[in-house]
Design a protein around this nucleic acid. Structure first.
Length: 396
DNA sequence: TCTGGGGTCCTAGGACCC
DNA sequence: TCTGGGGTCCTAGGACCC
């Protein structure tokens, strides 16, 4: 039986949410109606465009480019800083509204959801429901969404990307040839800037060109990615809407430094701050990490990662930090660094399948238990007074 | 390039084991 | 061993998404 899938996509999410936040605080202007972007902090060397108004878009400004470049395209561009905590609040408002229609919602990102409406139509037409959702979001939440309607996720997602803003589009299987095949290959989900030139060099320019190649050819040229793009181009996607919250598979934090530095002490201090955040989140999820990865970016924009499997999984800040510190020392080679980051992976759910033996009294485990207690105390303070209230930074 | 930050998944080579 | 091949683990890097 065919499924009924909706893809909801907030139009210019960061910019729209900043706009209504400003209006609520008494701003006279709606930044959706002027050439404006949400950008990172240029003074902190994070000056890229994160979202743009439709007017800014008309100047040719694209997400991800530098604000410097964007200003050249549009000299009277207004740039605003965003607030990620506010974005999550608006995201939650949308999610709660959508929950009135189905329990089967996958939060694909902060501003995108998939809804499986198959068993929730109650005799109503899917387009009627989509229209009601679209209008209610606009009226009650003051921002707009695009909604894609189809029988699977990839087609619903492609559909929501058609004409914007505040629009509903269907892309049923019998509409693929007319609505999707004429599009440039770069429009296909999962086709990025590296693959497009390769396709072009093979004489493949439109989604139709991909769809009409034979599958074996695509697999031979692009491996599993070739299979995926061939299936997507033909509208094939049997993946489910994942509505049960899954535990993260990795947790990471990274930071562009205020200025490039090769001072290991300074780098370690930042590394500890980042590690504290990572480990805190690990413990909040009841997870233990098995691998630690550090990331560095040199002043010349060369990126490296270095990782190590731990001899024993842990969520103890100190233990993760000690490993990260070693990796950083090995990796940086006295170069001036622009960015450092730390991540943990191969996470183990301690609430399900992990038991710390009470008979484990090796010297190692005594120290481990001591640090575990320290973390627990600090976490309680963070939970009570906020995560920036207390930090180990500089004390290790 | 005056070039963010947080994720997922895949590939490939070398080590190691049978 | 101057030998073959397959499987798994570890590590590094890359593509893609928002």
């Amino acid at each position: 039986m065919d499924r009924k899938i909706l893809h909801i996509d907030v139009n210019n999410a960061f910019l729209s949410w900043t706009a209504i936040d400003m209006l609520e605080k008494g701003s006279k202007i709606d930044i959706r109606n002027i050439p404006a972007v949400i950008g990172g902090d240029e003074a902190a060397r994070r000056g890229v465009v994160l979202a743009k108004s439709n007017i800014a878009k008309k100047y040719g400004i694209v997400t991800g480019e530098t604000i410097y470049k964007a200003r050249k395209k549009c000299p009277n561009l207004k740039v605003f800083l965003g607030s990620h905590s506010r974005y999550h609040e608006y995201s939650d408002k949308l999610y709660n509204l959508l929950l009135e229609y189905t329990d089967k919602i996958e939060r694909f990102s902060v501003d995108e959801c998939f809804l499986d409406m198959t068993e929730y139509l109650m005799g109503r037409d899917i387009l009627t429901i989509a229209k009601e959702i679209k209008d209610r979001v606009e009226k009650e939440l003051k921002f707009t969404v695009n909604i894609g309607v189809s029988e699977n996720k990839v087609l619903a997602k492609m559909a929501s990307d058609f004409e914007k803003p505040n629009k509903i589009h269907t892309l049923y299987k019998n509409e693929i040839k007319k609505k999707m095949w004429p599009l440039d290959v770069k429009e296909l989900f999962m086709l990025g800037r590296k693959t497009v030139p390769k396709l072009n060099s093979l004489g493949i320019y439109t989604i139709k060109d991909i769809a009409l190649k034979n599958l074996e050819y695509m697999v031979k040229k692009f491996g599993t990615h070739g299979k995926t793009m061939w299936e997507y181009a033909n509208g094939i996607d049997n993946s489910e809407v994942i509505y049960v919250k899954e535990l993260p598979k990795s947790i990471s934090h990274s930071m562009t430094l205020m200025k490039d530095t090769s001072n290991l002490q300074e780098l370690n201090k930042v590394l500890l701050e980042l590690t504290e955040k990572v480990a805190y989140r690990l413990r909040r999820c009841n997870l233990y990490a098995t691998t630690v990865t550090i990331q560095i970016r040199t002043k010349n924009f060369e990126n490296y990662t270095k990782q190590k499997k731990l001899s024993r999984s842990t969520s103890v800040t100190k233990e993760i930090y000690e490993e990260a510190k070693k990796l950083l020392k090995e990796a940086y080679k006295e170069r001036e660094l622009r960015l450092i980051g730390i991540g943990v992976g191969n996470l183990i759910d301690t609430s399900v399948n992990y038991q710390t033996s009470i008979f484990d009294t090796t010297p190692d485990s005594k120290i481990h238990n001591k640090y575990e207690k320290i973390d627990k105390t600090l976490d309680e303070i963070k939970n009570k007074y906020g995560s920036s209230s207390i930090t180990l930074a500089g004390k290790m």
